[in-house]
Design a protein around this nucleic acid. Structure first.
Length: 436
RNA sequence: GUGGAAUUAGCUCAGUUGGUUAGAGUGCCAGGUUGUGGCCCUGGAGGUCAUGGGUUCGACUCCCAUAUUCCACCCCA
């Protein structure tokens, strides 16, 4: 029997799970501050939704979907991204009649059949946001501002924002024509993929990596020169709002998106640490998506963050994040007092403390080692004497100091110690803020 | 999907041109005070050498297939 997890999937063990939870908590909290509500949609949808929504020209739909027939012969697909499902829910649940704009966030796993690489998995998680109902550039800019806040709250640095506008269907048609005019005479020397791109989506020829094709991109007409007046105005406003919020960005005319639904603003946050899969976050506007899958015109803009890539980036930058709390107390006992230890731990834990105790009849020495390893703040040795006197020595592991206390006072004492540590930490935080 | 590299103890890795019983560090467990952690010392557990075939008197070592991972391309988060 093959005991490996399937290619591209992995087990998430307590240490990483802890980090993920902290990350997700921070994200949820930032979303809340910006007025977003959480949405959860099904793990699989009708295949048709992704074909129409993501686009049948995209690589995701053409070769990366986990599609299967269920027992009722329905073609279903594990979601390869979040926006199509959320848009479907928006339509199905009649959110167009909610007060606009509708602002949603999600935390969902995605599935794509891709060849494995660092930061690229077959099951991976995305944190994302969508704003439905606003065609205004403020919405684009606020989403980006929100990401900057999120990265800031994480303590993350050195991720660069790249933006571009890929226009609307009207100006894109003009641009595609300009690209075809430019490439047509040179096409015979270009690679096979580019021949296909020439027909289906000449935009993609711009980031071909073949030496010759790549060299041609330099001189190719730029999308930005072909934006219609409305798109140009929209993009100019996005840029000016970013400047006003003092959010630095690189204008990248080569930036295109792999999903067909994007229009106008597209952006990425890119890391230099994660390797080739350096895009931590990608997003943009998708004014045509809702019309494509529903029958109403609703503009939208959103982004998706790769959780695994974010974790890699946090590691690379050495940012301590989401470590499990240290136990307030370790109760060491002997076989004759194990039940008393269990009972004391039970009531202290119920009072809100984190308390560990031995459940293996181990030697006192081994129990101390365990307490030390898990970095418990205090150890209480509970032997026959302590039980009969209802008093014990509370030993602080950091300096070995001991104090003799009634067992009934231990809870209060530890709660006080906890408060003291918390306020010291808060003072610390305040003083660093003050320095800045 | 194309090309390349790797896989030996829980983890990080040695392992000679194919030759007895496959090693180290670290981690884990125990002992070194019969009621006290960190340092140190001693001992122990833990490996079907990724899996399945093949070559050979003999394979961790050579060959093939499969699985998984990594790198480049591709793609994207």
């Amino acid at each position: 029997m093959n005991l490996n997890a399937p290619r591209g999937t992995k087990d998430i063990l307590p240490e990483e799970a802890e980090r993920r939870r902290a990350l997700e908590r921070t994200f949820a909290e930032v979303c809340e501050r910006y007025g977003f509500g959480e949405i959860r949609v099904p793990t699989f949808e009708h295949t048709e939704l992704f074909v129409r929504g993501v686009g049948d020209a995209s690589d995701i739909v053409r070769k990366e979907m986990y599609t299967f027939l269920d027992k009722g012969d329905r073609s279903l697909t594990l979601r390869p991204e979040g926006t199509a499902g959320v848009a479907r829910a928006y339509i199905e649940q009649g959110m167009s009649s909610w007060p606009a704009p509708v602002k949603l966030w999600y935390n969902m796993n995605m599935f794509r059949y891709e060849k494995m690489q660092k930061g690229r998995y077959r099951e991976f998680w995305q944190l994302g946001c969508e704003i439905f109902g606003s065609a205004c550039p403020q919405a684009d800019a606020q989403l980006i501002g929100m990401l900057v806040t999120f990265f800031d709250d994480l303590g993350l640095d050195e991720v660069n924002l790249e933006i571009n506008s890929i226009g609307c269907p009207a100006c894109r048609a003009a641009y595609h024509q300009a690209l075809r005019d430019y490439y047509a005479p040179k096409l015979k020397d270009m690679c096979d993929d580019c021949h296909e791109r020439f027909e289906k989506n000449p935009l993609r020829m711009l980031d071909c990596k073949e030496a010759y094709c790549h060299s041609l991109a330099e001189e190719a007409p730029a999308q930005l020169d072909y934006l219609c007046d409305d798109c140009k105005e929209h993009f100019d406003k996005v840029k000016s709002y970013l400047s006003m919020m003092e959010i630095p960005y690189n204008l990248n005319p080569r930036l295109v998106r792999g999903l067909d639904y994007y229009t106008r603003t597209v952006f990425e946050f890119v890391s230099s640490h994660v390797g080739t899969q350096g895009t931590i976050c990608g997003g943009g506007r998708y004014d045509g998506l809702i019309r494509e899958i529903g029958n109403i015109d609703v503009p939208g803009v959103g982004f998706a963050l790769g959780v695994e890539r974010l974790l890699l980036e946090l590691d690379a930058q050495g940012i301590p994040f989401g470590k499990a709390a240290r136990p307030d107390l370790y109760i060491a006992s002997f076989p004759s007092t194990a039940a008393n230890a269990l009972d004391l731990a039970q009531s202290l834990i119920r009072s809100g403390l984190k308390v560990e105790t031995d459940v293996m009849d181990r030697s006192l020495k081994a129990q101390f080692k365990a307490a030390d390893r898990m970095e418990a703040h205090y150890v209480l040795v509970l032997g026959d004497t302590e039980v009969s006197l209802s008093r014990g020595k509370l030993r602080r592991l950091s300096d070995g100091s001991e104090q003799d206390v009634p067992l009934t006072a231990v809870g209060t004492l530890l709660h006080d110690y906890r408060k003291k540590l918390a306020s010291a930490k808060e003072n610390d935080r305040q003083s660093t803020l003050f320095k800045l």
